[in-house]
Design a protein around this nucleic acid. Structure first.
Lengths: 115, 115
DNA sequence: TCCATGATCAACCGATTGGTTGACAATTCC
DNA sequence: GGAATTGTCAACCAATCGGTTGATCATGGA
């Protein structure tokens, strides 16, 4: 179900709403990284960056695994796919309605019974 | 550019991270709605709901247009499409890597130079 | 063995969030 | 004109967020 009240989407979209975290995710596309490696591009304390990784973890977007004294992180695609497929609901909309939009606003609202 | 530091994605994903706002967006798929109509399903003050509409507006996800004493809202697909195409970057990832993920975590990290 | 490294944790801070209430403005209807 | 409807605005509140610092802990390398 791709329902609007799906609580797990809250966390996924929230996690994606921060540019620091999006950059982390993008770097993880190239393969696993340690927390320190993920933190390196940012002028930020390690603890701060590790918090971001924690958010990504709790959102289910990355998996952390301790290996010795370092923690390796890998991208988990499932939740990203969930967010993607949520938005997919609207693909039809922006294909079909792109031009109709202006009219709906400027003229009378004719859309209420047009599902 | 579908870059991680795109500031407008911040607002879009942030707007999508709230279930109230996702429900509003989904109802707008069927056609334009007034602020009151959007507020109706929720046990929340009108002012509260109107704030959510404001967030959606500032994120570029809906367009508001005052018509008489009511404000009509319509879905604007462009930014939704932007978010969708951002996630599209990863479609390749979850296609190609779905099975590789477990290995990357359990075994040595072999992914660093595999873009 | 000693020390530097990698990471987490707890406490704290200012800013933002989601929500409320109350006042207000504009429009519509009688 | 007067009253009800629709919506915004400002102020406020508790909770959360993004970030810091300092302490701690385990591990790895000299």
């Amino acid at each position: 179900m791709v329902d609007g009240s799906d609580a797990s989407l809250d966390d996924v979209f929230r996690a994606l709403s921060d540019p620091t975290r999006r950059v982390m995710i993008e770097r993880l596309r190239a393969g696993p990284r340690t927390v320190s490696e993920l933190a390196e591009p940012f002028s930020m304390s390690l603890a701060g960056a590790a918090k971001h990784v924690g958010v990504l973890d709790r959102a289910g977007l990355v998996a952390r695994e301790r290996r010795g004294r370092e923690v390796h992180c890998a991208l988990r695609p499932e939740r990203l796919a969930a967010a993607h497929s949520y938005l997919e609901q609207y693909a039809e909309f922006w294909g079909r309605r792109l031009d109709a939009l202006a009219d709906l606003l400027e003229r009378k609202d004719d859309g209420k019974e047009t599902p």
